[in-house]
């Protein structure tokens, strides 16, 4: 399947303001200035790849994301050609049925796909996995996340209103991309831990913006992870009424090192959080109808406590960031599963 060639439009001058005016007439753009996608810039972005190959068809618009259409949006977002393979792989991942993109795009929740870049391409294409990785200040992180958002809006039709019903929207809907700090991960790379043994990979997790976890003083995993658990166990997030939801726990290198030096593996961290991130059943029953709970959770008594997710494997752990002792929790939208795919060239 291939898409028709994208339309070429006349632009008064090679200028971001002129482009914004032109695009505004069509309802395109994210509100920030964009790089005009001239044929020359798009050809440079594509390099030798087949421009007409369909990578994915994105709901709710059923827009056909060919490599050329992806490259156009990458130019708009300010990407360099080195980052295009990550954007292409991310679009491929967006189309995975378990990610449930139709729901992600259309929901009233503030969900946005977080991209986590793994492996060789994180370094070769200039991604930031260290200090300030969630931004701002790095072109690769900022433009890759923005390219994916522009593709969701332009190709997938996820414009606020007709295709994106998010009640308040959210800053993560502008750009949401980090690289994994594999060099400082005591447990190796995340992608390999979920069975993707590729030199480069990208994970998409459709979740909320990061919730901070601050622990400056602990030299033992327990007080650090208890704070992580506390951030996970709150009533306002979708994971509270939806038991199948995932959490991504983004540990800073210093918190990860404390856990590893005590002999804790990635799985140990997930298992501990599964048992500590709990709420009283009665409290959850007061707050929700519980219709999206697993049957075994519905059978619990009011004075039991229940984990915020039905299985430890729903708690995903990776390392990101630089010096300092702030980690974060990224709760899921709920009815979505993260996807990790290899990045080609």
């Amino acid at each position: 399947m291939t898409g028709d060639a994208p339309l070429l439009l006349d632009l008064a001058e090679d200028d971001p303001d002129a482009l914004m005016q032109l695009y505004d007439e069509h309802g395109w753009g994210d509100g920030l200035p964009m790089v005009p996608p001239t044929p020359e810039r798009v050809e440079t972005m594509l390099a030798a790849a087949d421009p007409d190959e369909t990578i994915a068809v994105l709901p709710p618009r059923s827009g056909i994301a060919t490599r050329r259409v992806i490259a156009i949006n990458a130019v708009l977002a300010g990407c360099e050609p080195a980052q295009l393979p990550v954007v292409v792989a991310a679009v491929r991942a967006l189309a995975s049925p378990e990610l449930n993109l139709r729901g992600v795009n259309a929901t009233t929740h503030c969900v946005a796909p977080l991209l986590i870049v793994h492996g060789d391409i994180a370094e070769s294409a200039g991604y930031n996995s260290g200090l300030g990785a969630f931004g701002p200040g790095n072109r690769a992180n900022a433009s890759t996340g923005r390219a994916v958002r522009l593709i969701l809006m332009h190709v997938g039709g996820a414009r606020p209103g007709p295709g994106d019903a998010s009640t308040q929207g959210g800053p993560a809907k502008y750009s949401y991309c980090v690289a994994e700090n594999t060099a400082q991960s005591p447990w190796g790379g995340y992608a390999a831990s979920v069975g993707v043994e590729s030199a480069s990979a990208v994970t998409l997790h459709c979740g909320e913006a990061p919730h901070n976890v601050h622990d400056m003083e602990s030299s033992d995993p327990v007080p650090i992870l208890d704070k992580v658990a506390s951030s996970m166990a709150t009533l306002g997030q979708n994971n509270a009424p939806i038991s199948s939801g995932e959490y991504f726990v983004a540990l800073c290198p210093e918190h990860a090192a404390v856990c590893a030096s005590a002999g804790w593996t990635r799985r140990h961290v997930s298992s501990y959080l599964f048992n500590r991130a709990t709420l009283p059943v009665a409290e959850l029953r007061r707050a929700f109808g519980l219709r999206a709970w697993a049957p075994w959770q519905q059978a619990l008594a009011d004075d039991d406590r229940v984990s915020m997710t039905e299985h430890p494997e729903n708690i995903k752990v990776f390392v990101v960031g630089g010096a300092g002792r702030h980690s974060s929790v990224i709760p899921s939208w709920g009815m979505t599963k993260s996807v990790t795919v290899a990045v080609g060239v």
């Binding site: 028709d4 994208p6 070429l8 632009l11 005009p36 001239t38 044929p39 827009g63 156009i72």
Partner: peptide, 20 residues
């Protein structure tokens, strides 16, 4: 001068596929 020349730019949305 080059900046002021009229140029061509792509539309960013691509084609729409057939509904399933």
């Amino acid at each position: 001068e080059r900046k002021r020349e009229r140029i061509k730019v792509y539309a960013p949305d691509g084609a729409v596929g057939s509904p399933a």
